[in-house]
Amino acid sequence: MVNCMNKFKSQLSTNIESFLMFKHSVGASYQTGEYYLHNFDKYNLVNGNYDYLDKKVVENWVQQLKERTHSQDMGYMSYIREFGRYLNSIDNKSYILCDKYKSVRYKANVYLFSNEELHKFFQQIELYKGCASTLKESLILPAIFRFLYYFGARCKEARVLETKDVHLDLGYIDIIGSKAHRDRRLFISKESKAYFEKYDSLMNNIIPNRKYYFSDKIDKYYSSNSISLYFNKIWDLAGLRKETEIKPRAYDLRHHFACENLLKWSANGENVFAKLPYLMTYMGHSNLESTYYYLHLIPDFFPKYNQLSSSSNELIPEVDEYEV
């Protein structure tokens, strides 16, 4: 992050600092945005030193960055456009970068499951358990997929989960050493507790001293390939394979978890935006912008919820690939 002390020099400095304070207050780290606003501030200082966003200055700044970077990911356009919206709401004259300047938006490779698909998928897991010849496929991998479904965890978080961090008696599971080192605690529902108590009882009788919760080895966890192969096998056996541009993956259970919670809150008439910081913390996102992403995702699959995202178009930043 750019040093916050006296880093902005142009007549826009006070407004930039106020804008960044606003972003930080809603949980956004905004480090990349801060970097580009610092860059724009220096450009503005030597190109008129305006106290508002001048159209020519903004567009020239965008153009010179475009020529200099040679990258298809032009996220700096998102940041100057967002700052323009903020400033225009105050002075009613600052330029908002027009739509002909569009960064390449990240199109997520996300498959959102229907409830019917998930019912068939888990039903097939139960059927396959009866004929599976290994402990891995009859007990452990089915439990991993229940874990992903119940908690919206990352696949790796399930694979490397240590037995010592699972506290069924206390009603929670600790996720340690996750992405960006964001440790967090997942609280257990009655349904999930009952499932994992049964799993735990069976596993403790078979491999009582295992290090990893989801493993049939004493001190080794499964590879990511194990999860993918099992998912594809069950998906095909359930008759769910179809020709689609986006192929479903185990990781999509995490996306399902996030979207289901947003839809549930909306259906219950709750303030979805007030709930986002809780979802951010629960899912281990490093900033609120990664959680906002799901509000953009939902209307693509559930058109009746278009209003949920369109009502916040001015507040939700454009999401770049590295933020997801």
Score class of each variant (00 low, 15 high):
residue 32 T to D: 07
residue 143 A to L: 04
residue 312 S to A: 15
residue 57 V to S: 09
residue 322 Y to P: 00
residue 240 L to K: 01
residue 102 K to V: 10
residue 73 D to G: 02
residue 74 M to F: 03
residue 253 L to I: 08
residue 52 Y to S: 08
residue 299 P to Q: 06
residue 300 D to A: 04
residue 131 C to A: 01
residue 228 S to W: 03
residue 97 L to Q: 08
residue 189 S to M: 00
residue 123 Q to K: 13
residue 300 D to Y: 04
residue 155 C to S: 11
residue 64 Q to G: 00
residue 278 Y to V: 03
residue 113 F to H: 01
residue 113 F to N: 01
residue 69 T to W: 04
residue 30 Y to R: 05
residue 168 L to G: 10
residue 58 V to D: 05
residue 204 N to M: 15
residue 156 K to D: 05
residue 255 H to W: 13
residue 107 K to H: 13
residue 101 Y to N: 09
residue 78 S to W: 03
residue 162 E to F: 04
residue 43 Y to E: 05
residue 286 S to H: 05
residue 90 I to G: 03
residue 239 G to F: 10
residue 16 I to P: 07
residue 83 F to T: 08
residue 280 M to G: 02
residue 216 D to V: 03
residue 277 P to C: 11
residue 155 C to M: 03
residue 287 N to T: 13
residue 139 L to M: 07
residue 56 K to C: 02
residue 273 F to V: 12
residue 291 T to P: 06
residue 177 G to W: 03
residue 179 K to F: 12
residue 92 N to M: 10
residue 163 T to Q: 12
residue 211 K to I: 13
residue 155 C to R: 08
residue 243 E to L: 13
residue 70 H to C: 06
residue 241 R to Q: 12
residue 97 L to K: 09
residue 21 M to G: 12
residue 291 T to H: 09
residue 311 S to F: 00
residue 7 K to Q: 14
residue 247 K to P: 03
residue 188 I to D: 01
residue 12 L to A: 06
residue 310 S to F: 05
residue 8 F to A: 12
residue 2 V to L: 14
residue 248 P to E: 09
residue 68 R to K: 15
residue 166 V to L: 08
